[in-house]
Amino acid sequence: MSRNDDFSEYFAARANALRATAYLLCGDWHRAEDITQVAMTKLYLAWPRLREVGLDAYARKVVVRTFLAENRRLWRKREHLTHEPPELPAEFGDAEQRLLVQAALASVPPRQRAVLVLRYWNDLSVEETAEALGCSVGTVKSQAARGVAALRRRLGPHFDVLEPDGR
């Protein structure tokens, strides 16, 4: 099988998952697609030497680092939330919960958000997260704790009320 066929197969299997990771990081589908495109292009260029390293790990690393690099470049344009989340309504549906969580996640500093996404969305270990971010295990632990605290602070009482299945 040629390099292009291999890559196309991998793309079909993993592009959506990578875009979902990018979306959780940046909260914007268009930007998530741009990040995915950059990651996939880098993956294609590095394809021959990635067979042993691990494609998923490399792709995740590129997505997170592209996000962080873009964030540094675009820090002036970053949106800042100015209002607290609304009070919990009587009928609290899935869509509202999702929006609330996304808004809260967007308020977490980018590096802490990256740690949260890698640890709790991609289910990576602390060591794997540290490797993906190029930092120490201790840094991952502290950033994760701060990220969870920021999320809890942002969601307020909703942090404990929200249910995973939307109830």
């Binding site: 999702r98 969870v148 999320l151 995973p164």
Partner: peptide, 14 residues
């Protein structure tokens, strides 16, 4: 809880 919250935020297909 954070795992469940992120699953909720990322579950939409887009």
């Amino acid at each position: 809880r954070v795992r469940a919250l992120l699953a909720k935020a990322g579950e939409q297909p887009g």
